[in-house]
Amino acid sequence: MTLLNELRTTTRRSSDLSKHSADVFAEAEDHTVQITRRDGETLVLMSQREADARDTLLQFAADLITVTLDDEGTLASRMADRFQWMLALSPEDQTKCAQDLVNAARASFATGQPHLAIAELTSWRETATAIAAGLSSLPIEWLDDAEPVERP
């Protein structure tokens, strides 16, 4: 079993790469392509976006492992120590964030889809950033009494 399950991978011969490079490159933009060679190890061709997503997921996994190895405090407090942007969240949201991130990471590893964990991480981080900037879900008072105006 691999760390990241391959959901969609095609296999091409090295001769396909030289004879039909445009087709092989188009496939690699969509999903991973294995290039087999008679005289060497199989190579993998993928987009930079996919490689970056895998790197980000592996870094996130390393951070989660570091957090779970610590046994002092709650999961939320240990994660807030590692991901300091979480300190902008309320204690309740820190707890929810921690559990959501763990669940998304598990789903990403189980399905081989790095975007699940990356999207969850980005969403919570952007929420914390917005809260730190003073944005909230409370209604803005000065808009309550605003009167509509005609379009110019």
Results as ranks from 00 to 15, higher is better:
Ser21Thr: 09
Asp23Arg: 14
Val24Leu: 14
Phe25Gly: 00
Phe25Lys: 03
Glu27Ala: 14
Ala28His: 08
His31Phe: 03
Val33Cys: 11
Gln34Gly: 04
Thr36Glu: 09
Thr36Asp: 11
Arg38Thr: 02
Arg38Glu: 09
Gly40Phe: 02
Glu41Thr: 13
Glu41Lys: 12
Glu41Val: 13
Val44Phe: 13
Val44Glu: 07
Val44Met: 08
Val44Pro: 00
Leu45Pro: 07
Leu45Ser: 03
Leu45Val: 03
Met46Val: 00
Gln48Ile: 01
Glu50Asn: 04
Ala51Glu: 09
Ala51Arg: 15
Asp52Lys: 11
Asp52Gln: 15
Ala53Leu: 08
Ala53His: 09
Arg54Ala: 05
Thr56Tyr: 05
Leu58Ser: 06
Gln59Trp: 13
Gln59Pro: 01
Phe60Ala: 01
Ala61Leu: 14
Ala61Thr: 08
Ala62Lys: 11
Leu64Gln: 06
Ile65Phe: 14
Thr66Met: 14
Thr66Asp: 15
Thr68His: 10
Thr68Ala: 05
Asp71Leu: 10
Asp71Ser: 14
Thr74Asp: 12
Thr74Pro: 08
Thr74Cys: 10
Thr74Asn: 15
Thr74His: 12
Leu75Asp: 08
Ala76Phe: 03
Ser77Tyr: 04
Met79Val: 06
Met79Asn: 03
Ala80His: 10
Asp81Leu: 11
Arg82Cys: 13
Arg82Thr: 08
Gln84Gly: 14
Trp85Met: 01
Leu87Tyr: 15
Leu87Asn: 15
Ala88Thr: 00
Ala88Phe: 04
Ser90Phe: 15
Pro91Phe: 04
Asp93Cys: 04
Gln94Asp: 06
Gln94Ile: 01
Gln94Val: 01
Lys96Tyr: 10
Asp100Pro: 00
Asp100Met: 07
Asp100Gly: 04
Leu101Tyr: 09
Val102Met: 13
Ala104Asp: 02
Ala104Asn: 09
Ala107His: 10
Ser108Leu: 05
Ser108Ala: 06
Ser108Tyr: 00
Gln113Gly: 05
Pro114Asn: 02
His115Met: 12
Ile118Ala: 04
Ile118Met: 12
Ala119Cys: 12
Leu121Asn: 06
Ser123Gln: 13
Ser123Val: 00
Arg125Ile: 04
Thr129His: 04
